[in-house]
Amino acid sequence: MNADFQLGRSAKGARIVVAMSGGVDSSVVAALAVQTGAEVIGVTLQLYDHGTVPQRAGSCCAGQDIYDARTVADRLGIAHHVFDYESRFREGVIDRFADEYVRGRTPIPCVSCNQGVKFTDLLGFAREMGADCLATGHYVRRVAGPHGAELHRADDPARDQSYFLFATTRDQLDYLRFPLGDMPKPAVREAARALGLLVADKPDSQDICFVPNGDYASIVKKVRPEAGEPGAIVDLEGREIGRHRGLIHFTVGQRRGLEIGGQPEPLYVVRIEPETRRVVAGPKAALAVRGARLSGINWLGEDQCDDLTVKVRSMAKPAPARFADGAVHFETPEYGVAPGQAAVLYQGDRVLGGGWIEETFAAELSPA
């Protein structure tokens, strides 16, 4: 099994830096890099204290994962470096994650992590080392286009991670390589077994690596205690219909957890008002939006294109839309779109860019 790292020259004498998280994906990338004949250097970032944040199956970038990455590097015969980025990760990802919840928004820490310590700091290290590229285990495809490198969805839609990489800049994309974009996950695990890598059957990491047991509320409350203060649940007219035990337990579009009975139809979280600690609940029709204004827009396309689709959640089905004046406009109403999420624009399989949702525009719908 071989992968094309698109080095632009003979691999002999070339140098590849591989971001190694300790999982099967990045381990196989390192092995593929070694097969090219280039000099390979593995780099692992310790992003949080595994004694403070309990580690579990599906975590990454701490404790056991660092040991696994080093063990794989030893087996492959490559140099391996570990850098302590706990402070940078806490400030740039964990604190931001908590602050977004305090503001009543829905954060996506994986994008923040890729924007910061992974693609900014790691890429800087790779360039300092004189590497020809930085390779990662992300499931996306880098395609050489007529105007330079393009970012495309992975061949395996179940593994595609392009939503989380919308903020990748053109300069970064020129330097990055994603060897697994054309491979299904079973083939990656089989390659790891054939190479005798101990991580071949290691569980996949979860989207939010630093949240033990999926209990994000406890992390937010620890960092920002005020987010756990109780408040009122109100209807669309502002009438109190219940109480809640902290905004950190709710996101827009959520149905479970409201625990309000006696209503004529199911209620959903329509809006969160952090200033008054109110959760606004209403019927599903109240969640319908016709568009959203974006901030922090990163554009990878050559111009404003037609035939666009947009994803407002990583697992959402792409929705037909148009992009104009810093906002996306859906062809048909979308539901559960929340400030803090990312809106990622595609043309076919290509990522054209995206941005952070700042506000949504309600659709005028009668109750379903």
Rank of each mutant, 00 (worst) to 15 (best):
S295F: 04
G340W: 10
P318H: 05
G253S: 10
A316Y: 00
G340L: 09
A327T: 03
V252I: 15
I357T: 06
V312P: 02
W356K: 12
D325P: 10
K317Q: 13
A324V: 12
I272G: 03
P320C: 04
V312G: 00
F323H: 06
A319I: 01
W299C: 11
L247M: 14
R313G: 04
G262R: 12
A342T: 08
V279K: 05
E265D: 06
I272A: 00
V280A: 00
V252D: 03
A288W: 06
A338W: 10
L352W: 08
G246S: 12
Q263W: 09
G326S: 08
V351G: 08
D306N: 14
T276F: 11
Y268K: 01
K317V: 12
Q347M: 08
L258N: 02
E359A: 10
G354M: 06
C305L: 14
E334F: 04
V270M: 01
D306A: 15
A292L: 06
R271S: 07
A288G: 11
A338V: 07
A343P: 06
A324W: 12
D349K: 13
W356G: 05
E273K: 11
R245T: 15
D307I: 04
G354I: 01
G340M: 08
Q347Y: 03
L352Y: 09
V312D: 05
R271H: 11
A281L: 00
R256A: 12
P266Q: 09
A288Q: 08
L258S: 02
E359M: 07
A342W: 06
L365C: 07
P318I: 01
E364R: 14
L345R: 09
G340D: 07
L352C: 11
E275H: 13
K311D: 02
L294I: 10
G340R: 12
L352E: 13
V344R: 10
A316C: 04
C305P: 14
T276E: 13
A285T: 13
G253K: 09
V289C: 11
M315F: 12
H249A: 13
S314Y: 01
E273V: 07
G296T: 14
H329R: 13
N298A: 14
L365K: 02
D307H: 14
A321V: 01
L308E: 05
E265N: 06
K311R: 14
D325W: 05
E259N: 13
E275N: 13
G353C: 09
E364M: 08
D349R: 14
D325H: 15
L294P: 02
A342K: 06
L300Q: 07
Q341S: 11
G246E: 09
L345I: 15
P333W: 01
D306T: 13
Y346L: 15
G262D: 10
Y268M: 01
E259I: 08
R290T: 15
E359W: 10
G355K: 12
Y346I: 10
L345T: 10
V270R: 03
D325Q: 15
V337G: 05
G326C: 05
L294S: 07
I260V: 13
K311Y: 02
D349C: 08
R277P: 00
